[in-house]
Design a protein around this nucleic acid. Structure first.
Lengths: 262, 262
DNA sequence: CGGTTCCTTGATAACGATCAAAGGCCGTGG
DNA sequence: CCACGGCCTTTGATCGTTATCAAGGAACCG
């Protein structure tokens, strides 16, 4: 199954897309937490300068290709991973082989922390939807740091509470809204992290995933998502070319979230 | 809406049920964390004896009637709540008025902690499905305790990680399994906390909720749940009388979780 | 080109939601 | 004590959304 997944990820189109997007780039080895652009948004911002320097010393930086797994469900948890750039998906697979993408992690977010704190190994797989650079902090060093800086634990707690709320909210949407609404919701949620405002006021959205993966994320079948997208196109809510979605008028997309309206 | 909810909870039958179950009972004012039966399972077990005594000093104990809310969605978060006995449901209501029960909390579990750590007020409502005794720990005292005992934060982190996994798992089941399977799953999950083994090897389950609430919990309509239950009865998997479910053979119920069988 | 993967489209079926109505249970009030 | 009235539950009928099955098409790598 891992092999199949690997194969599936080698979609040539996407790879080209990804390459095009790889413009500004610092060599991974030079990354320092002190100068990290995402420090402000991450839980690490509670650390003092010398503590960040210590993280710098113990961390490992690695760049993953599209489709590569950062960690795999079932593995022992060796640490946590801070996304420096790129997009990561967390996929849960059950015993029957069903799989679902639980959530995405963007630059600045830390992944694997819940599994680290639960202490029972990784319970989902984190893999990259885009070329992604990740800082890996080994378990033991993290434990040391948590002991020395209890505030860090509280920061993770706040992060966990957010994830929990998000999970609860989507769980609710799963039940109450149609696939078309969920697709619209997904596009809206990706707007901030992957959208580019255009001169005419429209928004160009570069989907960091295949439509198939989008289906996995919203809990639907690829065919159903395809139909929902075609419907949105037919109603002039969006325009789609490959993995680029153009949102002409944001209000139209927002209207899609309302229960029964034109 | 709160009024309507209050009305709905005054179902006379359930009230009688509840009264019958109120047998062994200590006066709430005498409860001490030191002698709490659930200490071992809760995050508080990481505290030292004198710290527990301090919690005893600052906490408030209160017994709630069936249907009473411990806290309400949207309120400011004034602290967290440790369930001493009874059953609590967390209900999330969205802007359109849809509501769903996210999870249950049994004796020994702490509720409201995620909202406390997120620091944005309560994001769901916790109300009692049964007469319930709860220890309330005010925010400020909890903050003090977290500062003095960082391990407590880690304990909550572990708890949060469990809740997150549970949320992810149910979110997956929502998509992959039928209502009948989800009902079976619910009964199985309540077996430990609300089941009583009978002499003939059967298990008697005292549902701590109405079927309507069960529907809200598994993300389905009451009518659909009713039909699923009737189906399980017809297939001799369970017997139902009011809110008591008798499971003759556990294996039959476990078989219900498999995709296509019998 | 061949091969693979993803996307699209069509036809059909199943599951669950919805609408509607009736019965049961039990506290309340007359 | 009985009748009323809530609310929950059940059952029926129907509709709609989505899954499923199936096949064709497009994009792109080697």
């Amino acid at each position: 199954m891992a092999a199949e997944s690997e194969m599936r990820r080698s979609d040539p189109r996407r790879f080209k897309d990804a390459m095009v997007r790889q413009t500004h780039w610092a060599p991974p080895s030079r990354l320092s937490c002190l100068t990290c652009n995402h420090l402000g948004q991450s839980e690490w911002c509670v650390l003092a300068k010398d503590q960040l320097e210590e993280i710098d010393r113990v961390k490992t930086v690695r760049t993953y290709k599209e489709g590569e797994a950062i960690y795999t469900q079932g593995e022992a948890c060796l640490g946590i991973h801070c996304v420096e750039s790129g997009t990561v998906a967390m996929r849960l697979t059950d015993v029957q082989g069903n799989s679902k993408i639980l959530r995405l992690a963007q630059a600045g977010q830390t992944v694997g922390y819940a599994d680290f704190f639960a202490g029972k190994g990784y319970r989902s797989t984190a893999y990259c939807l885009r070329p992604t650079t990740v800082c890996h902090i080994p378990s033991q060093d993290l434990r040391d740091m948590l002991n020395r800086c209890p505030t860090l634990g509280l920061a993770f707690l706040a992060h966990g509470a957010e994830d929990l709320l998000h999970s609860d909210t989507t769980s609710m949407q799963q039940v109450t809204s149609t696939v078309r609404m969920r697709v619209s919701q997904l596009l809206l949620s990706l707007k901030d992290s992957h959208g580019i405002s255009e001169s005419d006021g429209a928004i160009a959205l570069n989907l960091p995933m295949t439509w198939q993966e989008a289906a996995e994320l919203i809990g639907a079948r690829p065919e159903t998502v395809s139909r929902a997208v075609q419907g949105l196109i037919a109603d002039h809510v969006i325009q789609v070319a490959g993995h680029t979605v153009k949102i002409g008028d944001l209000d139209n997309l927002l209207d899609e979230l309302e229960p029964q309206t034109a």
